Computed example of a mutant assay.
Amino acid sequence: MKQLLTLIAGVIFGIGLTLSGMTDPARVRGFLDIFGDWDPTLAFVMGGALIVMAVAWFIQPKMVKPLVDTTWHLPGTRHIDGKLVGGAALFGVGWGLGGLCPGPAIASLGTAPSPAAIATFVASMLAGMLLHKLVTSKNA
């Protein structure tokens, strides 16, 4: 049941990303071009996401456990360190250069006008995750 609900949530998320235009790198770059032909669409998508998360943050403390799991899997710390800042900076640079972040990139695999470019982006993203896992497991 948990896997089915996870799949359904992922499909709904992917459909939302596609319908909102977030799988179009030009739209993301348009949002980042604040001194040129600025496209505010992404701001509305982010605002919608904040509303959904605000509801989740309000409801979660009132629940004993998640609906389809035995415990909550929340971050154990709120500490901001170099790894977090570096990762956020790397994410931002990749997002700005590529025009996609992981969710829209994966959703784009089925809808992209240039599937080779998207597949290369996703492959590079997966290689980066593997490299991070190898580096952090050796340092742990």
Score class of each variant (00 low, 15 high):
V52N: 00
G47K: 02
L74P: 03
L19H: 06
G14N: 01
I106F: 07
I59G: 10
A9L: 13
A123W: 06
D24C: 05
D69Q: 12
A140M: 09
D69N: 09
W95N: 09
G128N: 08
G48R: 11
R78Q: 06
S137E: 15
L109S: 05
A112Q: 00
H79Q: 13
M125I: 01
A89F: 12
A26S: 11
P113S: 15
V28C: 02
I15F: 06
A89H: 05
G92K: 00
V55S: 02
A26Q: 11
V45H: 06
R78I: 06
Q3Y: 04
G16N: 07
L32C: 02
G94K: 03
H73D: 13
I15R: 02
P25D: 01
S124F: 10
V85H: 02
R27N: 08
D33N: 15
V68R: 13
I34Q: 04
G92V: 10
M129E: 12
V11D: 03
G48Q: 07
T136Y: 03
V68A: 14
H79I: 10
G76P: 01
T77Q: 06
T77G: 04
I12W: 05
A9I: 12
M46L: 14
V11S: 00
A127H: 09
V11T: 06
P104S: 08
G92M: 14
F121R: 13
L17I: 00
W57Q: 10
D81W: 03
A43K: 04
G96K: 01
W38H: 10
M1I: 07
V45L: 09
V55L: 08
L134P: 08
L100T: 02
G99N: 05
A88C: 12
G103Y: 02
S114H: 12
F31T: 00
L7K: 06
S20H: 07
L4Q: 07
M53K: 09
L97P: 02
P104L: 08
G99I: 06
I34S: 03
T120P: 09
V55D: 06
A112I: 01
P113R: 13
F91W: 08
G21A: 02
D69E: 14
S108Q: 05
A9H: 03
M53P: 00
S137P: 07
I59H: 08
A127G: 01
G110D: 02
M46R: 08
D33M: 02
L50W: 03
V52C: 12
G76F: 13
D33A: 12
V68G: 10
A89G: 14
A123Q: 05
K65F: 00
V64Q: 14
P115A: 07
D37G: 07
V68N: 14
M125Q: 09
L100Y: 11
G87I: 00
